[in-house]
Amino acid sequence: MICADTGLLLHAWLDDELDVAQSAAMADHLQGCAACAARAREHERLRRALALAQLDLYRRAPAALHERWTPRHDDAAPPAALRPRRTSTVWAAAAGFAAALLLATPLFYTVQQRRGAGAALVDDAVSSHLRALQPQHLMDVASTNQHTVKPWFDGKLDFSPRVVDLAGAGFPLAGGRLDALNGRSVAALVYRRQLHLISVYQWPAATPDASAALRESRQQGYTVLRWIEDGMHYVVVSDVDPATLRQFAQELRQRTNGSDAPGTP
């Protein structure tokens, strides 16, 4: 391989898109050629900088656009054909407001009250997750370390949330924050899955009985899973595909049942 070839192939090599033979030839050449090796290092740095900035550079669709394209699923479903149009009218009226303002409008609460408590909770959780996606709102404590995140909640809540490390399962912890759902303070943990964020809300259940049943709903393109376990409510919200979120919930339940859960035998 000569230096002229590396101009193109270097990038395919960095992207791991070369076959084994070409890869080996490239590695060979880089070992012997200081100029090409320096160039490779520069581009590697550029790629790393882009990877670090990926979350900031990635543009997410505005909430209003998600709204417009997501049919609403109520618990008691009215005739399906009418609904997308009606939803879009409601949201078109609200489109000029910023997302946070939107959540505070009376319109929103009127819509909410017509439905069951479960649906209200799902609404609340999705809103909170959306609000958290606004810049600067995501995390009160940003850390990938469960032993940093868990103590942070001390004295801020009347319970101690369970914080587990799921990095091994492909869901690294990103941080935590205080939030409110259904009018009470809850712990919100944020996990990542590639570019997607997953919010996990926790608070003590009024009745300690565990309901293992996982309830799933979809709203505005977000999947919401909720269950009660060991006297704690769990609500998980994300825009990852539902199968991945179910896998996340399963990992979370397994780990929570392990070392960290108080009161389990």
Partner: peptide, 27 residues
């Protein structure tokens, strides 16, 4: 992200399969 002030055109009905397969890629 400022949404345009004009009201958007009416949306056609969205099927469940479209919602499950395509909408996750709206972002």
């Amino acid at each position: 992200n400022e949404a345009p002030a004009a009201s958007p055109p009416p949306q056609p009905a969205i099927g469940a399969r479209f919602e499950a397969v395509v909408l996750p890629w709206l972002d």
